[in-house]
Amino acid sequence: MKSSDVDILIVPGWSGSGPDHWQSRWETRLKTARRVEQADWYKPSRHVWADEIVKAVRSATRPVVLVGHSAGCSAIAFAAEHLHPGEVAGAFLVAPASERAKGAVPGMGPDFIAHRREKLPFPSVLIASATDPYCTPDEARALAEAWGSEFVEAGDSGHLNSESGHGPWPDGLLRFAGFLKSLSVVSQKVNQ
Score class of each variant (00 low, 15 high):
K2H: 14
I8G: 03
I10F: 02
W14Y: 14
W26K: 03
R29F: 09
A33M: 03
R35N: 04
E37F: 09
E37K: 11
Q38D: 03
W41D: 05
K43S: 12
S45I: 09
S45Q: 09
S45P: 03
H47T: 14
H47C: 13
W49P: 00
D51W: 06
D51Y: 00
E52I: 01
I53Q: 00
V54E: 03
A56H: 02
S59T: 14
A60E: 14
R62A: 15
V64C: 02
L66H: 02
V67W: 11
H69Y: 04
S70G: 01
G72V: 06
S74C: 08
A75T: 06
F78T: 13
H82G: 14
P85D: 15
E87R: 10
E87V: 14
G90E: 05
A91V: 07
V94E: 08
P96H: 06
A97K: 06
S98L: 04
R100Y: 00
G103Q: 13
A104T: 15
V105N: 12
P106N: 14
P106L: 03
F112R: 11
H115T: 15
R117K: 12
L120K: 10
P121T: 05
P121R: 00
P123T: 01
V125P: 07
D132N: 12
P133C: 02
C135K: 02
C135H: 08
T136F: 04
A140Y: 09
A144T: 01
A144I: 01
E150V: 05
F151G: 00
V152F: 01
E153I: 02
A154G: 05
D156Q: 11
G158E: 06
S162V: 11
H166L: 11
G167L: 02
P170I: 10
D171W: 06
V186K: 14
S187M: 08
K189E: 15
V190E: 13
